[in-house]
Nucleic acid binder design. Structure first.
Length: 743
DNA sequence: AGCACGCCGACT
DNA sequence: GTCGGCGTGCTC
């Protein structure tokens, strides 16, 4: 029997939603086996790719029952040891299925079992050495070979076959012959050419220079820097100078931006500064293109990688710095599949590699500011606008007693009129698309609500439909009430669609540009609109959160923020942080370049503390105030939260499942008095989630809150294996969410 | 996740 | 009597 031959036991990660590794046998003679290599493994009645995690180990399973690996897929590890460490940390920290976490770190092409991998190494030919007699002999006997040799000789560093082919199309035979004569040799380029790095950068101003120097000081050591710079203060330029320094030292930089931040503008700017030294990982890449970029970065052929969330897992040769722009942005948090926060993963990675990491934003997250308060992170400020522009004035406009026309107070309308008269642009931020958010019957009180969600349907008049913004379901709007047949159907509230219509009547002849998911179907649409705005013609721009970030609009002098009140009393613990961030981000769009800007925030609660403090423009003050509130209520970051979520076709099923989980947790929590855990961890719920019914499924949650994170972790570490063992039906889904975004 | 297995309804 | 529906459970 084959198992009597010499073997060793090895542990493999498989891309499966299970919390353990799988044990297989590999030949003892496979000396080359290394953690990080992929193997093809027999799995039930098929084959799967497995990643070798540990060799020469033992198994709890009877060796007779273990199977031999089928074959090795890689000669070299595909996952470096430090990324293996990072994945192991992630699986444990975020309580996610270990195999899925490991495979998340690999490009899609490497997750599948078949596919030949393109060779990305850059090979160049160099002349070895040649003496005069040989040269004469070559010129006389093989003129073409001599010609090719001369081409190669002209380059100081050597040339790749593709480049030679451009000068001498059919060069392959000559190259072969020259190689045979040992006149030329092929070498593999394993690093970018620093001599060619001449980034086209602007000179830093005093304040930027100071920040840049302070950050540079921590080169080569782990340090988290927060760069709090107001809109237009030139954060990107500071990033670029830091990147340039890394390149000069032959080091690499990962530069992460939020999904919405990876705009053609930023790509152009990065390419202009670093040319083809920068790899850009955008969503349009195919699996093969993505693999190529990944491989080039791993080989160290390019020093800069600009990408979104998932680029945090890029393999590197010599990483020197990680930059995260718009650090507070929620798109760094992956919500589906593996749950993680790219910012926190990046910080962990920087720590493992002992390199600095820079988090830049105008409005740092409260988690980060709390870490500054605790002296874990270093805070740097940029308070001056580049190009002399002034920070916009923020005015709180009390509308509690005002009559609104098209959702705007008379005073706001007047201000818009004035700006338009002066040839300026006005931006109106309204984070609600559609025509009206509420449709109801005046006669019987019927409301248009979604069949599949706990939500009201939004009226979209252009298509004469009611649309649910949560599940996308649509229904026709009838003239008569479906409940009482009355014709007295009314709509309430204002969305961007209605705002556009009303403003076009109010400001006849003025161009109105609406930017929301209904008017922007793709990136191209977005670009066209942005160019339209940048043309500078007087106009009104209406937009949802799509317009809040990272674009330069030179001619906007007035920004109006509508309908921000829901956030003040929403009960969501993060709402005020987000509102403050949004108002400052949006108002930052005003008055760039050489024009003074103003932002007007309409509110019915003008004396709310947040509204009062927002006029001071000082985000730090506002943030410290919100932090104080969080401290009083023991909300994160002053406590840590882990949420178990379940969803099923019936609410009861989801609740029952969470109850079972709760029992396990309680049992372990009360039994574990040795660690003194008992009582330190509150287990709340299970309760139906906010908007419990969504897309036809009912969601519930069970929250664990503690100010002792290590106690929380040890509880979960003990409980999770038991929870996994609980029987579940296929119709029920559950997940764990560590550091959830919303409670 | 995917696939096999198993236990009940409508078909040659 | 069987074909196949999908609900359940396991994978080294």
């Amino acid at each position: 029997m084959k198992k009597q031959s010499k073997y060793q036991i090895a542990k493999f990660a498989l891309e499966l939603p299970v919390y353990h590794l799988f044990d297989y046998l590999i030949e003892a003679s496979d000396e080359e086996a290394q953690a990080g290599q992929r193997y093809l493994l027999p799995f039930i009645s098929r084959f799967k790719v497995g990643l070798l995690i540990e060799k020469n180990t033992t198994s709890k399973i009877d060796p007779e029952k273990l199977r031999f690996v089928t074959k090795k897929l890689d000669q070299q590890p595909q996952l470096s040891s430090h990324l293996q460490q990072l994945a192991a940390w992630m699986a444990e920290y975020y309580l996610q299925a270990i195999g899925e976490v490991y495979f998340q770190c690999l490009p899609r092409l490497l997750r599948k079992k078949s596919s030949k991998l393109p060779d990305n190494r850059i090979k160049i030919w160099q002349v070895k050495e040649i003496n005069q007699p040989d040269r004469l002999k070559l010129r006389n006997k093989s003129l073409k070979q001599h010609e090719v040799l001369q081409i190669i000789e002209q380059s100081p560093t050597g040339l790749s076959q593709e480049v030679i082919r451009k000068i001498f199309p059919a060069c392959q035979t000559q190259i072969k012959a020259l190689e045979k004569k040992q006149l030329i040799k092929e070498i593999i380029i394993d690093r970018f050419d620093v001599t060619n790095v001449k980034p086209d950068l602007y000179q830093l101003q005093d304040e930027q220079q100071q920040v840049y120097q302070n950050i540079s000081k921590t080169d080569g050591q782990f340090c988290v820097h927060i760069l709090q710079g107001i809109t237009g203060s030139g954060k990107t330029e500071v990033y670029f100078h830091l990147i340039k320094d890394q390149i000069r030292q032959n080091k690499q930089v990962i530069y992460l931006v939020p999904e919405i931040g990876l705009t053609p503008q930023l790509i152009k700017r990065t390419s202009r500064a670093f040319g083809d030294l920068a790899l850009i990982s955008h969503s349009g890449l195919s699996d093969i293109q993505r693999y190529k970029a990944w491989d080039q970065f791993r080989l160290g052929l390019k020093p800069v990688l600009l990408g979104t969330r998932s680029s945090v897992f890029s393999e590197t040769k010599n990483l020197g710095l990680i930059i995260i722009d718009e650090e507070h942005d929620s798109s760094f948090r992956q919500q589906d599949g593996i749950r993680y926060h790219a910012r926190d993963v990046a910080i962990k990675r920087a720590q493992l590699l002992k390199i600095p990491i820079l988090l830049g934003t105008a409005t740092p997250s409260l988690e980060s500011l709390n870490n500054v308060n605790k002296l874990h992170y270093r805070l740097h400020h940029l308070n001056q606008r580049q190009g002399g522009g002034q920070t916009p004035i923020i005015q709180i406009l009390d509308i509690s007693k005002s009559y609104l026309q098209a959702g705007l107070a008379a005073e706001l309308i007047e201000q818009i009129r004035q700006q338009l008269k002066q040839g300026n642009q006005v931006l109106i931020y309204l984070n609600r698309r559609g025509f009206a958010p509420v449709v109801h019957c005046h006669e019987c009180g019927w409301m248009a609500s979604c069949q599949q969600c706990d939500a009201k349907m939004t009226l979209h008049q252009s298509v004469n439909q009611l649309i649910c913004h949560h599940c996308g379901s649509r229904s026709q709007l009838f003239a008569r009430c479906p409940s009482c047949n009355s014709g007295d159907i009314k709509h309430y509230g204002i969305g961007t669609e209605q705002l556009e219509l009303s403003l076009s009547e109010l400001f006849e002849g003025v161009d109105i540009i609406r930017i929301d998911r209904d008017t922007i179907k793709n990136k191209n649409d977005f670009e066209t609109r942005l160019q339209q705005i940048q043309s500078g013609k007087a106009a009104i721009i209406i937009g949802t959160q799509m317009i809040a970030k990272g674009h330069d609009y030179a001619n906007i002098t007035l920004v109006a923020v509508l309908e921000s009140d829901q956030a003040l009393y929403s009960g969501q613990y993060r709402a005020s942080e987000r509102l403050a961030q949004t108002i400052l981000q949006v108002s930052g769009r005003a008055g760039r370049a050489n024009k003074v800007g103003k932002a007007i925030v309409q509110t019915r609660f003008a004396d709310h503390p947040l509204m009062l403090s927002i006029t001071t423009q000082d985000y730090s003050d506002i943030a410290q105030q919100i932090l104080l509130e969080r401290k009083q209520f023991a909300f994160p970051p002053y406590s840590r939260v882990v949420i178990f979520r379940a969803d099923a076709t019936e609410l009861e099923k989801a609740i029952n499942k969470l109850d079972e989980i709760k029992k396990v947790l309680q049992q372990i929590n009360s039994g574990d008095r040795t660690n003194g855990n008992s009582g330190k961890i509150s287990i709340l719920g299970p309760v139906p989630a906010i908007m419990s019914k969504r897309i036809g499924r009912y969601r519930a949650q069970l929250s664990l809150i503690s100010n002792d994170f290590s106690a929380l972790r040890s509880l979960l570490k003990m409980a999770l294996p038991e929870i996994v063992k609980l029987k579940i039906s296929k119709q029920l889904k559950w997940q764990v969410d560590v550091d959830p975004f919303d409670l």
